[in-house]
């Protein structure tokens, strides 16, 4: 298994090289001058050139590239032209918020989608099945930001159950940062009030993000459950008198989940890269907002940094999924 993980990590090298090369090329091909943008409207030509020199942007692009890759090996993701801070530090500050949001959304999606998919397969072609299919289609086709706005309108404006946005109210003192996940850090600090606040802030954006993976997971689970229920070993289990509940919850569910796992892994990565709209609607200080600002000001270092981090997380998520395959299906266990 260690070999399996190592091989995956080695395979990352070409991914990183490809990603950085492409991003550097794009940075060069884009019209406009990011340095001039960063220097401000009143900067003189001399000031702009000085800034370009400071960031090494006056050197040939391949020198810039190798300097960047050299830094990468030390965990240096370059410096943002805009914030003048190391990109690595910025990402470390924004990533936990995004991760917390995405993980919460995926937990909701999995916790509801899997049982619902199983249930609709067992009771297929009856009204609960039809109802959830219709809802699922709706959930998949509704844009997340629009759903976010609807949720805000309903739960924050009319019912006033949940806060409109942000991670914590200004008046609540944030707990000391351990994991960067406010829900966990407040628990570690033992501050139950802050914890409930953090949960209430997390709820709406997480739900808004979770609906489309939830619907997809549900439909995948439904399809694979139906397929598994037609397998010979299910007939055998029935013929040998196993109770129906046990057959479905134990024998069918486990085999059906393994097909659904792929979707879960893919969605995890997809959500990571697609938080921008939800983060914007809910004023959630995450990676998406950070990357958007950087893109608008053509500040390439943060953009490359964010792309790399999301890419790595995506690969890591799928590695975890692949390892889970081995847990669920012993036939694909790694030697």
């Amino acid at each position: 298994m260690l070999y399996f993980i190592l091989r995956r990590i080695v395979l990352l090298v070409p991914v990183v090289i490809g990603l950085t090369v492409i991003m550097f090329a794009i940075a060069r091909l884009l019209p406009g001058d990011p340095v001039a943008l960063a220097a401000g409207p009143n900067a003189t030509q001399g000031e702009i050139e000085a800034l370009a020199h400071e960031f090494g942007l006056d050197r040939p692009v391949w020198t810039q590239y190798f300097t960047y890759v050299g830094g990468l090996l030390h965990g240096d993701l370059g410096t943002s032209l805009l914030t003048r801070r190391p990109v690595a530090a910025d990402i470390a500050a924004y990533l936990p918020a995004t991760l917390e949001l995405v993980i919460a959304a995926m937990l909701i999606a999995v916790a509801i989608g899997i049982p619902l998919g199983l249930a609709t397969a067992v009771w297929r072609n009856r009204w609960p099945d039809y109802l959830s299919q219709v809802v699922a289609i709706g959930a998949i086709s509704m844009p997340r930001f629009f759903l976010g706005l609807l949720l805000q309108l309903c739960f924050a404006m009319w019912l006033m159950w949940l806060p409109l946005g942000g991670r914590l109210p200004i008046i609540v003192i944030p707990p000391p940062s351990v994991t960067g996940f406010l829900t966990i850090d407040t628990l570690i600090a033992g501050d139950m009030h802050a914890f409930s606040m953090a949960m209430r802030h997390l709820a709406m954006p997480a739900i808004a993000m979770s609906l489309s993976p939830l619907a997809t997971i549900m439909r995948m689970m439904r399809a694979s459950t139906i397929e598994v229920m037609n397998q010979d070993y299910v007939t055998t289990a029935r013929a040998l008198g196993l109770p129906r509940g046990k057959i479905i919850l134990k024998y069918v569910a486990r085999n059906a989940i393994s097909a659904t796992l792929t979707v879960i892994g893919l969605y995890f990565g997809w959500l990571l890269g697609g938080t921008v709209l939800v983060e914007t609607v809910f004023d959630w200080p995450g990676l998406g907002l950070y990357a958007t600002k950087a893109i608008i000001s053509q500040d390439m270092m943060p953009v490359i940094g964010v792309a790399l981090v999301i890419g790595l997380l995506f690969v890591a998520a799928n590695l975890v999924i692949d390892l889970l395959y081995g847990v669920i299906n012993p036939k694909v266990r790694y030697s």
Binding site: Y233, T236, A237, A239, K250, S258
Partner: peptide, 24 residues
């Protein structure tokens, strides 16, 4: 009928490769 299956009436099917659950 369910109480008879497995207990009073046993069954064996054709394909041994597909009649055992691969996950257990």
């Amino acid at each position: 009928v369910q109480t008879l299956r497995g207990k009073r009436i046993g069954m064996i099917f054709q394909d041994p490769t597909t009649n055992l659950n691969p996950a257990y």
